[in-house]
């Protein structure tokens, strides 16, 4: 397995898209934090935390990059060479998910540092959580980014078409799940986006305790991974 993970990490390091995604994490997080800090008042610690949790954009980007990375194997027909290197196709999905989780961890860390560098001076005298609260929010964001990569790879293994899979994932995350959340509170709490928000301690969505949100989000990752592995295992590579 370690050989497969090394190979998958090398794949990520040797394509320009990875650097672009990391740059996007470093740029978009601070930009969103800057805009929120300018357009809203930070009168409570939760308001300030809301500005800082814009670093969580890295989670969405890494989830989408996970989809792109996995479906890219089909798109460029590199899947044939990838599968020929291993006896069990499930190892490919797991190795790719682990590599993407590490990439997500890096993206989350870069985004958190960049957001802090921009937001802390902007927040000035606004109330902030204590160090423990901030550390938990930061850890939650890192976990969110890492696990989002696993979910992206799992979903990418289910779909064959890169464009269709990306559109389906975006529509689910940005339209269907929020719409369902309007009617069913359970979706806000236990949905992919809801649990991710609670994990990253973003105040807009989800009110699960952070530990429970971690468990739910890991559950989503395991479901995506299991479904992706099962589909890839049975798929003909034509």
């Amino acid at each position: 397995m370690s050989a497969q993970v090394r190979a998958e990490l090398l794949k990520l390091r040797t394509v320009p898209a990875t650097a672009l995604v990391l740059v996007a994490c470093v740029v978009l997080g601070p930009l969103l934090a800057f805009l929120e800090a300018l357009t809203s008042e930070q009168t409570t610690a939760a308001d300030s935390r809301s500005v800082l949790t814009n670093a969580g954009i890295s989670g969405l980007l890494i989830l989408l990059y996970g989809v792109v990375s996995m479906t890219g194997e089909e798109r460029h027909d590199t899947i044939a060479g990838t599968l020929l290197a291993v006896r069990d196709r499930r190892r490919v999905v797991v190795a790719k998910a682990l590599a993407m989780a590490l990439c997500g961890l890096l993206a989350g860390a870069l985004s958190a540092v960049a957001v802090a560098a921009v937001a802390v001076p902007l927040l000035g005298d606004a109330p902030l959580e204590d160090a423990g609260g901030l550390a938990l929010a930061c850890a939650g964001q890192l976990a969110y980014s890492a696990i989002a990569g696993v979910i992206g790879v799992g979903l990418g293994a289910i779909g064959r078409s890169q464009a269709l899979t990306l559109v389906a994932v975006l529509v689910w995350l940005l339209a269907i799940e929020p719409t369902l959340g309007q009617f069913f509170d359970v979706v806000n709490r236990f949905g992919i986006e809801g649990s991710a928000a609670a994990l990253a301690r973003a105040p807009q969505l989800g009110d699960l305790p952070q530990g429970a949100a971690l468990a739910v989000y890991v559950g989503w990752a395991l479901v995506a991974l299991a479904a992706g592995s099962a589909v890839l295992r049975r798929r003909d590579v034509t």
Partner: peptide, 12 residues
């Protein structure tokens, strides 16, 4: 194996 469609990522 050599594949008819290549099997390379164009950015690598």
């Amino acid at each position: 194996a050599v594949w008819e469609r290549g099997g390379f990522h164009p950015g690598r």
